[in-house]
Nucleic acid binder design. Structure first.
Length: 657
RNA sequence: GCCCAGAUAGCUCAGUCGGUAGAGCAUUUCACUCGUAAUGAAAAGGUCGAGAGUUCGAUUCUCUCUCUGGGCUCCA
């Protein structure tokens, strides 16, 4: 029998009989590898284990415990989901079922507009386990588009994909289903076959560590004018342990949910009487917010910004001039008709800042002119999009508009990046991701030349700062390209916070000018930027980042004093009074309840320091210090403790710019 | 806006096959005065999200609305 030569990732070569598969290669390397294998990379493409290899192929085995391996498990599990649903609900049309982060989903169109319920999920999951127990093979085959259209004649969504792809109109959503002009599919049973690029595990018995999570509606092809399908989400992993760890992570994330913690820690609430997406801040939340704002103001004062204030309402002419009424009217609160015009709640501050710039003649000597405002804006976010503090209808932007010359632009962007990162680090974020968003060809104003110029300036700013970034094509605002900055929180989730946006448009619309050194009039360049984005959202992210345990400098209460018994009450009160006079936020828990109970309550309130005072402390002027997350220390001198506390606060709060 | 699921005491939830409701924690009071994560007892606390319909009677069934949650779409 003829032999073929296979090259492995380490460069070594092995000989196999002709017709050998990737599974044979894995088995020849080791039995553990063979067991862990789910697919392989053959000459750069992902292949099933069962496909015969060509001579000279480069082969790398994909194991289940890698991202690529889990992707195969998840994608294969989604096929099992589709088979289970089509068995249990005859007549179901199925559309697409890709692997996603942590899992997979599949979209279905059920007969008679039926929808899934919780019980259905249980039944479907049970049927999936039967299919896995049956150990059905995933058999790959290929066909022409015409054959595929015939095979999937009763599956309109599949036909839609085939026609679109063969018609040259494929998009990203189609890529897991189909590629090129030959259509591949995988058959599990005589009845069930699904169009798919693959790869898949060899058989359904290889699967099993999964859980169906939830049902949701999803538009076919993401088009809100199109049909609404029923989507089932699931998670799948290489082992039961990995599934359990994933579920544990979800539970931990839920414990950090800012909406839950806002209630538990009495920070703020969303009274239904107010209307959706509107919050009221309780005293404890307000303290934290005030500290954030104070810090932001201090940094801006040191950073060469000038503070301004603008009203919440404006005549519609202003938003006509800015162009926002043309582009974003649906997102604005409706018009208020007054006897002297039509007024709107402001959805952003920039037009008003432009009016400040334009209020008198400006000289190049004033530039860059940096206007800063904690500006309250109101946007009519669609009902289904509201989400706690993260998506809210009334919020405060830490908003700045910088007017500068073309020559100043790149320096300004570079120093802005510096400023943004420095402020975010002060709030405990260390890991940043940068994005450069470019023009949306369907939605923009201004000339191509001006867009290229702005985009290039942002790009050079990032390059000059030496930052790695990703480009998001077509993701820019209508008025200009932007840099967005994501941070990674304590449990690895990413949040988009800061934004730096170039704008060659508003200066035109507002006819902004400055007098240059040449005594001629020039148009300034405008930058929009926000560090927190919105105070509310940033606060929400901080709550989740710290799980409600704010660092001492911004904690609503920095310490609580607990007299062991009533006899120690006067001493405890003197400790509170002395600490308050030093500017610390402290309260007392009277000796009405047992000490253990009061300690527990203080810990649940996530107060940084619990100070227990008893006989010894009264006698020698000391404190029992019980720090959050640390060991109890008895007999600490009062001055010693307050000095330590002061140092901690100062160290956490850098004020350099 | 669309699909699905919800809304019962301050919080977390149970319950009523249609006859106006209960627990734990929190709160208040009393007793206990305690050295590092839940002392005991009692009291008080609810138009059962809002409106309409069916019914002798609706917190429960139906409809509409408001708000919330999970998705989709959107996010200047």
């Amino acid at each position: 029998m003829a032999q073929i030569t296979i090259t492995l990732p380490d460069g070594s070569q092995r000989l196999y009989d002709e017709g050998a598969t990737t599974a044979d290669v894995a088995a020849s390397i080791g039995s553990r590898l063979a067991k862990a294998a789910v697919a392989a990379v053959v000459d750069g493409d992902e292949w099933d284990l069962g496909r015969a290899l060509p001579d000279g192929a480069h082969v790398a085995i994909i194991t289940a415990d890698t991202d690529a391996g889990r992707h195969v498990l998840r994608h294969s599990t989604s096929h099992v989901l589709a088979q289970a649903v089509t068995q249990l609900f005859p007549g179901t049309k199925f559309s697409i079922g890709p692997a996603i982060d942590d899992g997979f989903y599949y979209d279905f169109d059920l007969p008679d507009a039926r929808t899934f319920n919780e019980d259905d999920l249980v039944a479907i999951e049970a049927r999936m386990r039967e299919i896995m127990k049956a150990d059905q093979p995933f058999v790959r085959f290929e066909m022409s588009p015409d054959e595929a259209l015939a095979l999937f004649a009763d599956q309109p969504y599949k036909c839609d994909i085939i026609q679109r792809v063969t018609g040259g109109a494929a998009d990203r959503g189609d890529s897991s289903e189909i590629s090129g002009t030959t259509i591949s599919a995988y058959r599990n049973t005589p009845q069930f076959v699904d169009m798919c690029v693959g790869p898949h595990v060899a058989s359904t018995g290889r699967l099993g560590h999964f859980k169906l999570m939830k049902v949701a509606g999803a538009y076919w092809r993401g088009n809100e004018k199109g049909p609404m399908l029923q989507r089932i989400y699931g998670t799948a992993w290489e082992s039961k342990v990995a599934v359990d760890e994933h579920l544990h992570r979800l539970a931990e994330a839920e414990k950090r949910d800012h909406r839950r913690l806002a209630t538990e820690l009495d920070l703020l609430s969303f009274p239904t009487e107010l209307g959706g997406g509107l919050a009221v801040w309780h005293p404890k939340g307000a303290i934290v917010r005030k500290l954030m704002e104070d810090y932001s103001r201090e940094r801006h004062a040191n950073g060469g910004y000038q503070f301004v204030f603008t009203p919440h309402l404006a005549n519609g002419n202003l938003f006509q001039t800015s162009g926002h009424l043309d582009w974003y009217k649906d997102g604005m609160y409706p018009a208020m008709e007054m006897d002297n015009g039509t007024y709107y709640m402001k959805p952003m501050n920039c037009p008003m800042h432009c009016l400040i710039f334009r209020s008198r003649q400006r000289s190049y000597r004033e530039l860059p002119l940096r206007l800063f405002e904690l500006g309250n804006v109101y946007r009519y976010e669609r009902a289904g999009t509201l989400h706690g503090l993260m998506r809210i209808r009334g919020f405060t932007q830490d908003d700045s508009h910088i007017y500068c010359t073309e020559d100043q632009l790149q320096d300004e962007i570079a120093s802005l990046l510096d400023f943004v990162i420095s402020v975010l680090k002060a709030f405990g974020f260390e890991d940043f991701q940068f994005y450069l968003s470019t023009k949306d060809p369907m939605k923009y104003v201004g000339s191509d030349e001006i867009w290229d110029k702005a985009t290039e300036a942002l790009r050079l700013g990032l390059d000059r700062y030496g930052l790695a970034y990703q480009v998001k094509e077509g993701d820019a605002a209508f008025y200009g390209p932007k840099i967005d900055i994501d941070v990674k929180d304590a449990i690895g989730r990413r949040w988009q916070l800061s934004t730096i946006q170039c704008d060659f448009n508003l200066p035109d619309r507002f006819n902004l000018e400055y007098v240059g050194a040449d005594n001629a009039r020039h148009r300034p360049i405008m930058l929009h930027r926000a560090l927190f984005g919105s105070i509310e959202r940033f606060f929400g992210v901080l709550v989740e980042h710290y799980a409600g345990a704010f660092p001492t400098w911004m904690a609503p209460l920095q310490a609580r004093v607990l007299p062991v018994a009533e006899a120690h009450q006067p001493y405890a009160e003197s400790v509170v009074a002395r600490m308050r006079s030093s500017g610390f936020r402290v309260d007392i828990a009277d000796a009405n309840d047992q000490l253990g109970k009061r300690i527990r309550a203080a810990k649940l309130d996530k107060i940084p320091y619990v100070l227990v005072v008893g006989d010894d402390d009264v006698a020698s002027g000391t404190l029992g210090v019980n720090p959050r997350g640390g060991e109890v220390e008895r007999g600490v001198g009062f001055e010693q403790f307050t000095a330590r506390l002061q140092a901690e606060v100062e160290q956490q709060l850098p004020t350099t710019s």
